[in-house]
Design a protein around this nucleic acid. Structure first.
Length: 478
RNA sequence: CGGGGCGUAGCGCAGUCCGGUUAGCGCGCCUGCUUUGGGAGCAGGAGGUCCCGAGUUCAAAUCUCGGCGCCCCGACCA
């Protein structure tokens, strides 16, 4: 049925790129490693931005914009930070036809330029907290790229906050992790596991990195968002101090947090099927598409008129599109909208008008049902909710079916290859064991789960047999 | 950066080994007619620096040399 889309079971990565092409979400650009986000993809991103932006504002944040260019010397001020990012930085050496005195780095992230400004803005505890977010593009020179998941340039939001106390910074870090968790669940319909990154996997320059991890349909893990407690690292690097109520001078505490267009990849790989992408209703640019069916001009007018009447009460309740195009047959349209992932399709033709009903087709289950026109609007609303819920439940079930507790290393080595999935393992906490794990299995410790996901219990490190107090999640990752 | 594959119409490809008509096919596109409830049919038509450069030759998409680009798989990463 789906022309030009590889089957997930046969070639998952091919399926992924096929689906993006079929849905017209993105295209390869003439620049290596960079993609063009096409209108269908950008419309989705705009919906995501709108929802996230609202959540940021509700938690007290404001938007601002900082420059694309960062003086090279700024990047070098925080030791771990520069080490982490240097290999993937793009550097501008010339401008205005002349060699620059100091090379400019195209931001891979904005901590340094922002903290250079915070230094100017912060003197007293009265200036704190600063809760700024920015929507921007960043560049990280990647060796291997994949549409949405890893491209040289990508779009994201990065929050950068400044606080008077360590506790407040930690609270902020967790608060945003919570925002991301809710966004993943309520909007993207993706269940995530919340956790802390290991020393090795944390953000370069952070004290501690929290993350949300999601399982894709190929059972690999995708980091879907990160929130960093930066402690006083950047304040020290940029000498940002403030006076507290008692006149004592201290360095400012910082956080940063971000999600990117990578989340579009997460949506594709969490919900898509062999026919194409499936947009979660809460984020779908078009939630309902109407395909009118006619044979004659008279019929066409009649049907479109009826659709017009029906849709009056839809305005403001959900987004819809009437596909009136001539020259395409209904079947062709069905397929196109399926590939675009529109959650609900309504078919309405002469037979339906006679019987005063329409055909409603769910994208997630492919289920067809006949709906009386009198209850159509409420049915549509209910069905959109049901699809949103079903996508989430389906993903959660999939993750649970592919998560395993394993206590034997050789058993793990076997199972990570087949069936693969998320493995809850005991780990002693040593970097040596962590490195060995990756070298020998290509899998990594995705996170040490926290709160509702936590699994505190005594055990023995699967690698060295050392003591362990909790299980960590190990998986192959994107 | 290592391994593999590829570059010919908008897309996907054949032709290249073994040089030789006007470079072809499928999809898409344009026009017209018939169609329209799961990717329509017929007829006509438009569209090419055969990745670039140099060389060999009477003659190069095809052979030789050099370059460039892209995709896939690994090491690094949101």
């Amino acid at each position: 049925m789906a022309k030009g889309i590889a089957k997930r079971s046969e070639d998952y990565s091919r399926w992924y790129t096929d689906v993006i092409a079929a849905a017209k979400l993105a295209d390869y650009s003439p620049i290596k490693g960079c993609m063009v986000i096409r209108p269908n993809g950008y419309a989705l991103w705009e919906r995501m931005q709108a929802a996230l932006d609202k959540m940021f504002k509700e938690t007290g944040h404001v938007n601002a914009y900082f420059p694309l260019f960062i003086p090279e010397s700024f990047m070098k001020k925080e030791a771990e930070h520069v080490e982490g990012f240097a290999p993937e930085c793009a550097v501008v050496t010339h401008g205005g036809g002349k060699k620059l005195e100091e090379p400019l780095i195209i931001r891979p992230t904005s901590e340094t330029i922002i903290w250079s400004m915070y230094k100017k803005w912060i003197q007293s505890y009265r200036d704190l907290p600063i809760l700024i977010n920015q929507w921007a593009n960043v560049v990280r020179w990647e060796m291997r790229t994949r549409l949405f998941l890893r491209t040289t340039e990508f779009l994201w939001q990065e929050g950068h906050t400044a606080h008077a106390t360590a506790e407040e910074a930690e609270q902020e870090t967790l608060k945003l992790l919570d925002v991301y968790t809710r966004f993943a669940k309520d909007y993207m319909a993706i269940p995530v596991i919340r956790g802390v990154k290991t020393e090795r996997e944390k953000f370069a320059g952070a004290l501690r990195t929290y993350c949300i991890e999601a399982m894709m349909q190929d059972k690999k893990a995708l980091q879907a968002g990160t929130s960093h407690n930066l402690g006083q690292n950047f304040a020290k690097a940029f000498d940002v101090t403030f006076q507290d109520e008692r006149g004592n001078l201290d360095f400012v505490y910082a956080t940063s947090w971000g999600v990117s267009t990578r989340l579009i990849g997460a949506i594709i790989m969490s919900h898509g099927d062999d026919e194409g992408v499936i947009m979660p209703p809460k984020l779908a640019p078009i939630q309902v598409v109407i395909v009118p069916i006619w044979k004659s001009e008279t019929e066409k007018n009649l049907i479109l008129q009826r659709v017009e009447q029906l849709s009056i009460e839809w305005n403001g309740r959900f987004s819809f599109h009437v596909d009136e195009r001539e020259g395409y047959r209904p079947g062709w349209k069905y397929n196109e909208w399926e590939q675009y992932g529109v959650p609900i399709r309504i078919e309405i033709g002469p037979k339906d008008l006679e019987q005063n009903h329409v055909i409603l087709v769910r994208r997630d289950t492919q289920e067809k049902q006949s709906v009386e026109i009198g209850i159509l609007t409420t049915t549509l609303e209910k069905t959109l909710d049901a699809i949103q819920m079903n996508l989430y439940k389906r993903s959660l079930k999939f993750r649970e079916e592919n998560s395993f507790y394993v206590d034997d290393y050789s058993e793990f080595k076997k199972q990570i290859e087949d069936p693969s999935g998320f493995f809850w393992l005991h780990w002693c906490g040593s970097p040596e064991c962590e490195n060995r794990l990756q070298e020998e299995t290509k899998a990594t410790i995705r996170c040490i789960p926290i709160d509702d996901n936590v699994c505190k219990e005594k055990g023995r490190c699967v690698i060295c047999g050392g003591e362990s107090n909790e299980r960590v999640i190990v998986a192959k990752a994107y």
